[in-house]
Write a protein that binds this DNA or RNA. Structure first.
Lengths: 204, 204
DNA sequence: CCTGAAGTTGACGCATGCGTCATTTTTGCG
DNA sequence: CGCAAAAATGACGCATGCGTCAACTTCAGG
């Protein structure tokens, strides 16, 4: 029973390190969501963890790398889930609907992360010039291009189309999730209708 | 010839005040666009004007009111222009196309303002909870509702539809304006196709 | 040209943040 | 148990920002 789960229970040393790192990341999420990345100081973050100033620097070299880690995590997760959801799509309509649904379910399941992204959208874009909010405009674009190649879609400017789909998705998500109660299905349906109809029209 | 233009040449006193205020606003636009509102200090702004620290407080009480002024100006201008453009619309398609075109021409004519908005999108949303980037999602929404009332559009969730149109417009604008050279017409056409097609489909 | 009000200036006291590093605490191991 | 390596601590020196305010400059009006 000693060598059980390969990566688990690796001694108190490792456990504390992992816990501290996690605490810093968690605190950073809160702070960045509350007052915004630009206005936040490293001390705002560590203060919330109960750790000492110096400890922060054992884990991250600066504020930016902290944000980067948080965003990379989120972007990876979002991309994986949207991709997976699209896999089984059987039609254009299904493809669009599944993508939006997966994205909204992802956003909705962690309100703090949602607020973090919403709040720092501009900063994120400038700092990393791509990941943006959509976490995958490029992937969507590639999918669109594949669909054109397969004759499923009419030829068009896929960069702008992907941007339109992501932009509409994000903005609709913000409005939809701000409602009480919110209705993911309705939002997915609206967006699906728009883009399926729109894409068809572009081909005519 | 002495009392010529009603509001002009009102003495050196007034002229200096106007110039100082303008200089502060101009500097603030630069700074907010460059490093973001959150990270910017009042001193970053006044330093760039050559004025003294204290002078800032003769014109604005704090950083936020400065941003507010800048954004109110931009939002007013954008709204007026989009509204005006839509006035003469003769069809749904025309309505959508004119709106987007006016918006893009507005954005394109002042790259610094564009960068300011892009960079601080998240902050703006949180700070003023509405004006957002779109500067007029609500107005668009009202127009959509009028169109439904007039039987031009099928009944649907106008809040989400307006959000989708604004979100797509903003995101497409960012991508389109980032190109060299950029093509406003193509972007307008794409968006018009999407939403006209989408709106028609929602009615079927 | 004089004068008083309007406006500008920048140093001041205070607060906060930065990254470092000598010291102390904790942990793994023989 | 005892000790060396690893990690946490927090005070330190420095930098920067805040809003104020007494002294100074500029302008309008007589």
């Amino acid at each position: 029973m000693s060598d059980a789960g390969a990566t688990v229970a690796a001694g108190k040393r490792e456990a504390t390190k992992a816990a501290n790192r996690a605490a810093i990341v968690a605190a950073a999420r809160e702070v960045f969501a509350e007052i915004g990345y630009g206005a936040a100081s490293i001390r705002d973050v560590i203060r919330r963890t109960g750790l000492a100033t110096g400890t922060f620097y054992n884990y991250f070299p600066d504020k930016e790398s902290l944000l980067r880690e948080i965003l990379d995590d989120a972007a990876d997760q979002a991309r994986v889930r949207v991709r997976a959801a699209r896999q089984g799509a059987t039609s254009l309509e299904d493809f669009v609907a599944r993508g939006y649904r997966a994205y909204y379910e992802f956003l909705a399941e962690d309100p703090e992360r949602f607020e973090l992204l919403r709040r720092n959208a501009g900063t994120i874009r400038v700092l990393f010039d791509e990941p943006a909010l959509g976490a995958g405009t490029d992937e969507l674009r590639r999918d669109l291009q594949d669909a054109i190649g397969a004759g499923v879609l009419p030829d068009h400017d896929t960069e702008l189309m992907a941007a339109a789909m992501v932009g509409a998705g994000v903005e609709v998500g913000i409005h939809m999730l701000g409602r009480e109660p919110y209705d993911v299905d309705a939002a997915v349906q609206l967006l699906t209708g728009i883009f399926v109809g729109g894409l068809q029209r572009l081909g005519s």
